[in-house]
């Protein structure tokens, strides 16, 4: 690790994700917890004012809210789940999208600069809801036996393949899906935050502790940090999109008879 050249430099690591408690008495209550709650407050306020008095010709805030809502409704819910049943799951998908998107974007908002979802507990909480939802929907739609039968023995496959396919499908649907869903979100936010820390803190260290050319080179590190910040914005929104999209896909898959 090239960072070892400086004597006082400690490379950023997972220790950077353990933040000091905000209140002395509450050991567990750190910044991300507050951010998760604040994000809910922001979203509730935002969409309360956007949807408070919906009008035929929308106000600017209503237009913005409707834009996000319409996008999730059309691209994520209706196109994937189908126009018959999507309204039932629209609140879930929409909440997931805006919750994850805002909490991810917290990672690059100045003074907050910490993605809530880089603490794996939060993705796990969301995944838990998704996992319960799509399994429950599948069992309700097709019956418990029918759900597992359709899952493990999809039609149109030579019978000897089932030996391999059935356990794979079971593991994939019941275990791998929630695991990857939460890990993908967590890993992207974790790595993205780490990336920004490396560039910004590294640049800071070069600027403060370095001499001569190294001081100048810190500009490159900061510039890269800024570029990466915009890249992170893209990744953060994309991850929110993918999480909501996969939720819709899993629900749609559980509802349809064939896989």
């Amino acid at each position: 690790m090239l960072a070892e050249e400086g004597e006082g430099y400690t490379p950023p690591g997972s220790g950077d994700f353990k933040l000091p408690p905000l209140v002395d008495n509450l050991e567990w209550f750190t910044k991300p917890y507050l951010m998760a709650l604040v994000s809910v407050g922001i979203l509730v306020a935002l969409f309360y004012f956007a949807a408070r008095r919906p009008q035929l010709v929308p106000s600017r805030l209503q237009f913005a809210g409707e834009g996000i809502y319409g996008f999730v409704r059309r691209d994520l819910a209706r196109d994937i789940i189908g126009s018959n049943d999507f309204l039932k799951f629209l609140p879930l998908i929409f909440s997931l999208f805006i919750f994850i998107a805002l909490n991810n974007v917290f990672g690059i908002i100045p003074f907050i600069q910490f993605p809530t979802m880089s603490l794996i507990g939060f993705p796990i909480a969301l995944t838990l809801i998704v996992w319960i939802t799509y399994n429950w929907v599948g069992m309700r739609r097709q019956g418990v036996v029918g759900y597992f039968k359709n899952m493990m023995f999809p039609p149109g496959v030579p019978s000897w393949v089932y030996i391999l396919l059935a356990p794979l499908e079971l593991v994939s649907t019941v275990f791998v899906r929630p695991l990857t869903l939460s890990l993908r979100l967590f890993a992207n936010m974790f790595a993205g935050h780490l990336l920004l820390i490396v560039f910004i803190l590294g640049g800071e260290y070069m600027l403060v502790e370095g001499e001569g050319v190294v001081k100048v080179l810190s500009i490159g590190a900061f510039a890269m940090g800024i570029v990466m910040t915009f890249f992170e914005l893209l990744v953060q929104l994309l991850q929110a999109y993918i999480f909501a999209l996969l939720t819709a896909l899993y629900i749609a898959g559980a509802m349809s008879e064939e896989h």
């Binding site: 567990w28 709650l37 994000s39 909440s95 919750f99 603490l119 507990g121 939060f122 909480a125």
Partner: peptide, 11 residues
């Protein structure tokens, strides 16, 4: 565990 609980409550 606190993360999961807070996450569930917030969501």
């Amino acid at each position: 565990v606190a993360e999961i609980i807070v996450g569930l409550i917030a969501f």
